[in-house]
């Protein structure tokens, strides 16, 4: 009897259809394909150190992605993330150059991001007629505008040397990037928050059916406020890693990141209709995009394969401007 039920359970759980119908498999297959092609193109691609190093370049977006998943599950959208990143980065840099200690500057940056997100949240939950897209579209201009007002067309850098550890440091003597560890930690924390707490369940409920959740006593406005504030905070975290990677701050950093971040979340299987995220843990959703970018990066250095794949217009589009630039530089050097 017991054996029978176990067998049934196993059958149900491991039905091939059930497993392979999940979206994540497509992502994993995509990652494998992209990596296989990369390895074909460049003999230097497939070593563990290189791959680990590669994560440093694109993971700064990942933190904003985690919170953006919450926003999109709510059925909302936040286009102002990139501007929040720019503003909190600028505030951090300006505070440091004004003589505040680096730790306090980082805290100021985090606070700025949180306040920006909080402001979005207030507007969206107070004026229910306004869709989140129009509110964040206007705050997108406002936040980046404030960054321009503060810093003009200048850039501020000269951070203390330990600050670059955030983006470029390794854990101890191993070859594991610090940012990767922090990201995995954050991803697990957000996974728990979304799937194992009442707050996460309420986020799903609100996204699925706003009215029904309202009448069944879910504090929908409060949840929207919290989620948007969280979004601001995580954008600021992204900003810290980004600033650390760039080594300086300008008002026009992270330009156009909002579309990439939303695209990563949607690629990860979150429906823009709200309330849906097919299933759970440990999503590699930030990765296909990132590896895709590195693929382009590597192709830049191997000229022959570049010609072989020129028909693949999709990545051409990313690659070509830089390619021209590099060729120009090379020609100048040759002369």
């Amino acid at each position: 009897m017991i054996m029978h039920s176990i067998r049934r359970l196993i059958k149900k759980k491991f039905k091939i259809n059930y497993i392979f119908r999940q979206w994540e498999w497509i992502l994993i297959i995509l990652i494998i394909i992209v990596n296989a092609i990369n390895a074909q193109i460049s003999p230097y691609y497939l070593n563990a150190e290189g791959l680990l190093d590669a994560t440093m370049v694109f993971l700064d977006k990942g933190f904003a992605v985690l919170a953006m998943a919450f926003v999109i599950i709510l059925g909302d959208i936040d286009i102002s993330v990139a501007s929040i990143m720019a503003l909190s980065s600028v505030v951090m840099a300006v505070a440091y150059s004004a003589g505040v200690s680096m730790v306090a500057s980082i805290l100021a940056g985090l606070l700025t991001g949180t306040l920006c997100g909080f402001f979005n949240g207030i507007l969206i939950s107070r004026f229910k007629e306004l869709s989140s897209i129009i509110v964040t579209l206007s705050t997108m201009s406002i936040y980046r505008g404030i960054a321009y007002v503060i810093l003009g067309d200048k850039s501020v850098g000269n951070f203390p040397s330990w600050f670059s550890y955030f983006a470029w440091g390794y854990i101890g003597k191993t070859h594991i990037p610090f940012i990767l560890v922090v990201f995995i930690f954050c991803a697990i924390a957000f996974g728990i928050l979304l799937h194992r707490t009442t707050f996460g369940r309420k986020v799903y409920a609100t996204g699925n059916n706003f009215e029904a959740s309202l009448y069944s006593g879910v504090p929908v406005e409060k949840i929207k406020m919290i989620v948007f504030t969280l979004m601001g905070l995580m954008s600021a975290v992204s900003a810290i890693f980004l600033t650390s990677r760039l080594g300086s701050s300008r008002p026009n950093i992270a330009l156009g990141y909002e579309l990439e971040i939303i695209a990563i979340v949607v690629l990860g299987g979150v429906s823009t209709r709200g309330g849906v995220w097919q299933n759970s843990w440990g999503k590699p959703f930030a990765f296909p995009d990132g590896f895709y970018k590195i693929w382009n990066g590597i192709k830049k250095y191997s000229r022959s394969s570049y010609d072989d794949y020129y028909w693949f217009a999709f990545d051409y589009s990313f690659n070509y401007p830089q390619h021209i630039e590099q060729n120009d530089k090379k020609e100048k050097r040759d002369k």
């Binding site: 206007s138 201009s141 406002i142 505008g145 404030i146 007002v149």
Partner: peptide
């Protein structure tokens, strides 16, 4: 011009 972007956002809002 540095104020332009922020003001645009405020006006739309």
């Amino acid at each position: 011009p540095f104020w332009k972007l922020a003001l645009q956002g405020v006006i739309i809002l």
